[in-house]
């Protein structure tokens, strides 16, 4: 065993047991306090966020002072200068990225257009925010058949976020028109679909109420659906 160890001046520290113990105890406190504050929901959300971040920064400072012995090197204090610059750059990167990325999201399109696309296509989430009126996908499917000039069943009772599927088992193409007249009314922003022979169309039932529909050429071929909130 060598006892002639020269004390290397790496990082220039003169730590003592006391400094490490103080650092350790303070760090323990700065870890446990925010933990318990959070678990017991002592403050409101925003206050808690600020609090736990402040404690994190405090603990970092404690560890830098007591474990890393920062600031005790002799001049020029390059280590401290580099740390300060790095922390500034870190803030620039994090704050800059968050600022830019959130603005990019808001600039994606006019919000009403985004809302419409999201609703129509039942998109679950945009930029981490739950969107659309039908979370977790759609609900039940209700099938309605168009055959031999009749709609079977001619009335459907469904809930918001269910899907109405109209199947055309008839020979000609069936053009669905909402309402009773020949005006192009819409349901949930969309006009009625045109369904070729043997095909089907799916309608997301996102708006509550009772609606009728009929075929464009054969107005007696009609049906209705009632959509209620869950």
């Amino acid at each position: 065993m060598s006892n002639e160890v020269r004390i290397p001046k790496v990082g220039s520290h003169h730590g003592t047991v006391a400094s490490y113990v103080i650092g350790f105890v303070l760090s323990l406190i700065f870890t446990l306090v925010p933990y318990y504050l959070l678990v017991h929901k002592t403050f409101g959300k925003n206050a808690l966020i600020v609090t736990i971040l402040v404690f994190a920064v405090l603990q970092m400072a404690v560890q830098m002072l007591f474990f890393l012995h920062l600031g005790r090197e002799k001049k020029p204090r390059f280590n401290l200068a580099f740390l300060g610059s790095t922390v500034s750059i870190i803030l620039l990167i994090i704050v800059g990225s968050l600022w830019i990325m959130s603005h990019l999201y808001h600039g994606m399109s006019a919000m009403n257009v985004t809302d419409k696309v999201v609703t129509d296509e039942a998109i679950y989430q945009v930029n981490g925010v739950q969107a659309g009126t039908c979370p977790g996908g759609t609900g039940k499917n209700y099938e309605v058949m168009m055959m031999d000039g009749r709609v079977t069943p001619d009335h459907i009772e469904a809930h918001v976020c269910d899907t109405l599927i109209i199947v055309n088992h008839d020979s000609p193409t069936r053009n669905i028109i909402y309402g009773s007249g020949n005006n192009t009314e819409t349901y949930a922003g969309q006009p009625g679909p045109s369904i070729p022979r043997g095909q089907s169309a799916a309608i997301s039932l996102t708006e509550p109420g009772t609606y009728t529909f009929h075929d464009k050429t054969l107005s007696t071929m009609s049906g209705a659906f009632t959509v209620t909130q869950k």
Binding site: I89, G96, L104, H106, G107
Partner: peptide, 14 residues
Amino acid sequence: LSVWLHHFFTMGAG
């Protein structure tokens, strides 16, 4: 270090 967005002005940050 504080100018990088000028490479993507057109990406839509506003």
